[in-house]
């Protein structure tokens, strides 16, 4: 089993303002999808990111907002266990972001410290 990172990305939508009910429904879709992968014992670690952020560039330039100069924003990521990248892609298929115009980038992890 290798580890893969799924990065959830979507284009920045300034007018994005879901109702609390939509938010709740959305969270539930995500949790049901996570739960399905976790039930296979294949989740290593998952984090949702807050929309607020800052970006640090060379020469100590600090820009507010996570998406400075980037077309797409990372909404979160999950690290999964899979035999190979194709199995990891299969796991990615149910991701709710795909129904909202986003996409999932799947990358194999280079373990640090060997």
């Amino acid at each position: 089993m290798k580890e893969f990172m799924m990065i959830f990305k979507s284009e920045i939508n300034e007018s994005f303002g879901p109702t609390p009910e939509q938010m709740q429904g959305n969270i539930q879709q995500w949790m049901d999808w996570f739960g399905g992968i976790a039930a296979q014992g294949k989740i290593v670690n998952a984090n949702r990111l807050s929309f607020e952020g800052k970006t640090l560039k060379p020469n100590n330039v600090i820009v507010d907002g996570p998406y400075a100069e980037v077309k797409e924003i990372i909404g979160g990521y999950v690290i999964v266990k899979a035999a190979n990248i194709d199995e990891a892609m299969k796991l990615a298929e149910g991701c709710p972001i795909l129904n909202h115009g986003g996409h999932v980038e799947v990358r194999s992890i280079i373990a640090m410290n060997g």
Partner: peptide
């Protein structure tokens, strides 16, 4: 973690799979 350069993408409700990470260069 560090990530390998190569990767794959799945996009949209049709779940189109493409090779390579999306963003290039400084993204």
């Amino acid at each position: 973690d560090a990530l390998q350069v190569s990767g794959k993408n799945v996009k949209g409700s049709k779940k189109v799979v493409s090779d390579g990470p999306y963003a290039v260069g400084n993204e």
